[in-house]
């Protein structure tokens, strides 16, 4: 009895388009990769694979969260001072940019499933463009920091006038963490760009919507990481 229930849960899909009906799956046709029987099956594996990968990515940034938390206990004053000196308005605008881009790509996935290919493609490329805006703003911020004399490793003129313990640590982690995040943004843009191209020129059939979903889910994770980096570096 138990077995049967499990199987049902595994193969019968919910109403949501994430899991198409089994009949649909047969219509979609055979899998393109060796170990799977159906494309539906393969899509699920790909999605699970992406999520497991994202779990791994989250732990990568988890190291920064642990460091930031610990150093905040050790250098409460220094961190407060550094946060106040940060480019809050630019950083906050960047948060808004990423939130908008996430919305765009989520809507893109939605409309692609409905078959509105062009709109979906346009939204994907809007997302890529917003990613570019994010990176541009980020570079502007770096430029401002360098102009002020804030360099990673506690180097630069700014530190001559500011010597609260913890400032050097804050800025080094800031540069390393946001730099790593910017690398993820870049990878996400490339990923979305490739999928977006095949959406636009029609080479991505609806049955392969999961490829767009994978890129979108990756992009959302980049957003989620930033949602936490933003308050830690800019707000308080």
């Amino acid at each position: 009895m138990h077995t049967q229930r499990r199987r049902l849960k595994d193969t019968t899909m919910s109403e949501h388009p994430v899991h198409r009906s089994a009949a649909d799956a047969v219509a979609i046709g055979p899998a393109t990769s060796e170990p799977f029987d159906t494309l539906l099956h393969q899509a699920h594996a790909a999605r699970l694979g992406m999520w497991v990968f994202l779990a791994s990515e989250l732990l990568l940034f988890g190291g920064f969260f642990a460091l930031l938390t610990a150093y905040r206990f050790e250098h409460a004053d220094g961190f407060r001072e550094a946060v106040h000196a940060n480019t809050k308005v630019l950083g906050s605008m960047n948060t808004l940019v990423l939130l908008t881009s996430s919305t765009c790509v989520a809507v893109a996935v939605h409309v692609f499933r409905e078959g509105r290919r062009r709109l979906a493609g346009a939204l994907v490329f809007t997302t890529v463009a917003l990613g570019a805006v994010f990176l541009t703003l980020k570079m502007t911020e770096y430029g401002l920091h360098f102009h002020e004399g804030i360099f990673p490793g506690g180097h630069g003129e700014w530190f001559l006038h500011h010597d609260t313990p913890g400032l050097a640590t804050f800025w080094t982690i800031y540069f390393v963490a946001t730099g790593l995040h910017a690398m993820h943004v870049t990878v996400g843009m490339i990923f979305l760009g490739i999928v977006g191209r095949s959406v636009l020129n029609g080479r991505l059939p609806r049955a392969h919507a999961h490829r767009l979903e994978l890129a979108a889910v990756y992009w959302h994770l980049v957003d989620v990481v930033w949602i936490f980096l933003w308050p830690l570096f800019y707000l308080a």
Binding site: D10, H19, R47, L48, T103, V105, E213, H220, L221
Partner: peptide, 8 residues
């Protein structure tokens, strides 16, 4: 957005 609610 990431549709975790509907995932397996």
């Amino acid at each position: 957005f990431m549709e975790l609610l509907h995932e397996k």
